[in-house]
Design a protein around this nucleic acid. Structure first.
Lengths: 126, 126
DNA sequence: GGCTTGTTTCGAAAGTCATCAAGACAGGGG
DNA sequence: CCCCTGTCTTGATGACTTTCGAAACAAGCC
């Protein structure tokens, strides 16, 4: 898995001017938006949460298909989107395929949003 | 839907772990996915970064339209998506409209991603 | 009142996405 | 070797998104 036939896994995006100091440039915004877009679907968000909350640090696809009202191919499609966005990685071991998170990219998104939330309580106009 | 084609997980075994974890439930995933989806566009990400990095804590729309290759109506559309997702808020004051961030929701997303990034001791399979 | 500038809404064209069914591919076991 | 189960790819389709120009709305100024 993680086959190179499919292009464009952001290996690891350069880190990372704090959002509070300077606005994103166009290239950064493109890479980051692809990761956020991958999170912008309820099925994918639940899949990721199941992957990241697995006690073993990885999950078999056979455990992911239960509990969703969508077909197997659709799950597979969403897992591919998550993988190509750089949020998870996967590997076939024997009969089953396992997925695990890529913490470096998840943390990058987290740090970006944390920096985006103003520290001082904003003097919000009424 | 599609329940008919989901084969029951074989009674067996080591593949299928408990799966009774604290994964997101369906309602949470829907709300959160709407916010992530709003971030999943490069133009919106740059808009948000300009809003959150503003020294005054807010930005006039007239300052946001410069620096983008898209038309005014398109900027307005993206700002509305960010506002309806709960990531920013806005107000008209006289001639101009101002936008500012909503830190509580930005921090919620940040915390979610931070929790999703495993504590790095995870024995990631080779 | 009418003009000017800033912002949003409307309507439409082009592109992207989620989803399914059907079938292909991979690996284990008879 | 063929079959069975698990997972992925293909191809199609309906829904949604991005974007625009044109028009509407809002507020200030002559």
């Amino acid at each position: 898995m993680s086959k190179q036939i499919l292009p464009q896994i952001p290996a690891e995006v350069e880190c990372c001017a704090p959002l509070t100091e300077e606005a994103l440039d166009v290239d950064q915004a493109g890479d980051l938006a692809r990761m956020f877009k991958a999170l912008g679907d309820p099925v994918r968000l639940r899949l990721l949460s199941m992957i990241t909350s697995a006690p073993d640090g990885e999950v078999c696809v056979c455990d992911l298909t239960v509990g969703f009202d969508v077909s197997g191919p659709t799950i597979s499609h969403h897992l591919r989107v998550l993988r190509e966005a750089g949020l998870v990685d996967s590997e076939r071991r024997g009969t089953w395929v396992y997925y695990w998170p890529r913490p470096e990219n998840l943390r990058q998104l987290s740090a970006l949003l944390d920096a985006a939330a103003p520290v001082l309580a904003a003097p919000v106009p009424a």
